[in-house]
Simulated scan of single mutants.
Amino acid sequence: MTNSQISQSSPEIGPQSSPEIGARISDRDLPDHLVAAYREHGFVRVRGVLDPEEVERFRAGAEAFLAAHRAESIGGEVFRQLVNVWRRDPVVRELTLHPRLARIAERLAGVPLRIWHDHMLVKEPHSDTPTEFHQDQPYWPHTGGRHALSAWIALVDVPPERGCMTFLPGTQHLTGLRPQDLRDEEDLFRLDPSLRWLPRVTVPLRAGDCTFHHSFTGHMALPNRTDLARLAHVVIYMDAETAYSGAPHPVTDPLGLAPGARLDGPEFPRP
């Protein structure tokens, strides 16, 4: 199975014609049909979460931070990644702690949330390497949490050819798998062959749009075959009651936490 076989759209799954939500619509009132779509499919697209002025400001801030810290990025050929940028850059901090993002995330999750971490994800121009299908949650040293989800914010237009994401709807209910190899397109499907036959929904984003996806929802990102870097900022939210499992992770390794300790305090703020 190749990435060229991925369906580019599906009007039946996800909010393909959803109304915009942003500064001109009440931040408190996420339409019920978007909440229902998220809870059924494990992901949802929300248009216009950032208004154009915010997009320009946050994109400029992210680009400046990336230019100064590109050598520190991790991820290799799949993508460049800079983690916990909110702790180091005041402009990106405003984006990570943006109250509009947090209100939407908490409405979708249905539980109080904390920031797990943010990360800047960059696919460089003419990168033919996709990020293969995987779930996020198996990578995280969490226990006791009821819900975790990611807000994937497009800071540039991200059509399919620039590396937008493709989701496996309904897979948020699949738990207990080991972490998957982001470079191996067969790895998730070897773990559960039934997933191979699910519909695949590719979700292009305009700058300022955002997808929210459950931490167990299977997803991948297409290659970036354009002349422009794909610049996205991802805010990961976890249940405010989440505790540390004791497993290694770059975010928690320096903190000296004991297994079972709550992931709270200034490192993991309430948004």
Rank of each mutant, 00 (worst) to 15 (best):
40 E>C: 14
197 W>H: 15
8 Q>A: 13
83 V>K: 11
87 R>G: 12
71 A>G: 15
211 T>Y: 02
73 S>N: 13
46 V>G: 02
57 R>W: 05
58 F>G: 01
90 P>A: 08
183 R>M: 10
89 D>Q: 09
63 E>V: 12
116 W>C: 04
154 A>M: 10
56 E>G: 01
15 P>K: 05
9 S>A: 15
67 A>R: 13
51 D>M: 09
133 F>E: 03
65 F>W: 08
17 S>L: 15
212 F>T: 03
231 L>S: 01
181 D>G: 13
109 A>C: 12
261 A>P: 04
213 H>P: 06
229 A>S: 05
123 K>Q: 02
61 G>E: 00
11 P>T: 05
171 T>F: 04
249 H>S: 05
18 S>P: 07
135 Q>L: 12
199 P>M: 05
233 H>L: 06
244 Y>R: 11
93 R>Y: 05
99 P>C: 11
165 M>K: 04
259 P>Y: 08
259 P>A: 08
209 D>A: 05
94 E>T: 09
83 V>E: 06
51 D>N: 11
140 W>Q: 04
198 L>E: 07
217 T>C: 10
9 S>P: 07
32 D>I: 15
260 G>H: 05
220 M>P: 02
252 T>K: 07
36 A>Q: 13
116 W>M: 11
43 F>W: 00
161 E>K: 10
150 S>D: 07
110 G>K: 12
155 L>F: 05
84 N>G: 15
57 R>H: 07
189 F>G: 00
96 T>S: 07
182 L>R: 02
216 F>A: 09
183 R>N: 11
209 D>E: 09
79 F>Q: 05
9 S>Q: 13
12 E>A: 11
227 D>K: 09
265 G>F: 08
157 D>I: 00
197 W>V: 14
121 L>G: 02
27 D>A: 15
3 N>W: 14
64 A>W: 07
55 V>E: 02
14 G>Y: 01
267 E>Y: 10
134 H>N: 03
176 G>H: 12
84 N>R: 15
6 I>H: 05
1 M>F: 14
30 L>W: 00
147 H>Y: 14
261 A>H: 05
30 L>A: 03
27 D>F: 10
10 S>D: 14
214 H>E: 04
229 A>Q: 03
250 P>N: 08
48 G>K: 03
256 G>K: 12
105 A>M: 08
210 C>T: 08
10 S>R: 09
124 E>W: 06
84 N>T: 15
107 R>C: 14
153 I>G: 01
222 L>A: 02
39 R>Y: 07
120 M>N: 01
188 L>A: 04
80 R>I: 13
127 S>A: 08
4 S>C: 10
252 T>P: 08
52 P>K: 06
136 D>I: 04
88 R>Y: 13
24 R>E: 11
110 G>I: 14
54 E>W: 03
80 R>E: 14
8 Q>F: 05
55 V>K: 00
90 P>L: 10
234 V>Q: 01
15 P>Y: 09
181 D>P: 09
165 M>E: 03
109 A>D: 00
224 N>C: 06
265 G>V: 15
252 T>W: 00
202 T>C: 09
51 D>A: 07
100 R>F: 09
91 V>H: 03
91 V>E: 01
106 E>Q: 14
76 G>T: 13
55 V>A: 00
160 P>D: 00
224 N>M: 04
202 T>M: 04
28 R>S: 15
32 D>N: 15
228 L>G: 07
52 P>M: 02
23 A>R: 02
